[in-house]
Amino acid sequence: MHSLIQALILGILTSGVYALMASGQTLIFGIMKVINLAQGAFVVLSAYLSYSLLTAWGIDPFLSILITTPVLFALGVGIQWALLRPLHKDDAAELSLLVTFAVALGLEGLLSATYSTTFRSIQPGYENFSWTVLGYQVNAVRLFAFVLSLLMLAALYLLLQRTKFGRAIRATVQNPMAAQLLGVNSRLVAALGFGLGAATAAAAGAVFGIITPFNSGSHYDLISRLLTIVVLGGLGSIGGSIIAALVMGVGTALVSALASPIWSDFTFFVVLLLVLLLRPQGLLGAKIRGAL
């Protein structure tokens, strides 16, 4: 029982990070109907950036987010502008999928050329610190990460709900054509939205780098988890992806605790198949897509 609750705590805390990554992923899909296979690579890239900022200048990984977020935002906008925008409209859905895959491969190549492929982890010095509450370990970094993720998600929510840009994004998600007719610059929204999605990877990457050892190939594992979360939540629904992240985070923690970590990846796949079998639109998909 003790280990079960411990696993539960761990699962909930970890799910915050996944929720953050997945919200960016699902945002991009909502706006552009593009499945961004490079989201995992963005996360790994930000993890490496935070790692370098820490080892080179001693910048705390949580502070480095302030630097990496604009970088990732710019990268996202650049990729959308240079590689996705020019795609021929008829084939855009299929081609953009492959283009983002190519971007992921390119980033992987770049990162393994720069950092080699040995596993690294960000070690700010407090990575193992934890509090004991009622006999349960609460890891400080994971708790910070969880709180940070909530803050970022809240910021994202405010951005989408309370600003003109957010309204333009939501309009594009709901009906691109109508949004365009009403004067929304859909190209700009697409570029900035892709940047925003990439930017969520920055914060997630710093935290991911502290709690998990990573190398340039880690994005494969990440992307399959992220995609499962996004499908489970309902493609395009940020609220759904948060709930899905919680479900998957707790689920895998329990499977790891009860059976073995080996099967936790497999759990993701089985859940994915079950979702598609029982509720293909995901938890909060389709009908209220874009309602957040």
Partner: peptide, 18 residues
């Protein structure tokens, strides 16, 4: 097709992890 691509790419990494 979108979700099909998701399922198949996930399948790939599950197979590798297995």
């Amino acid at each position: 097709a979108d979700v099909f691509a998701i399922v198949t790419i996930t399948l790939l990494f599950v197979a590798q992890s297995l």
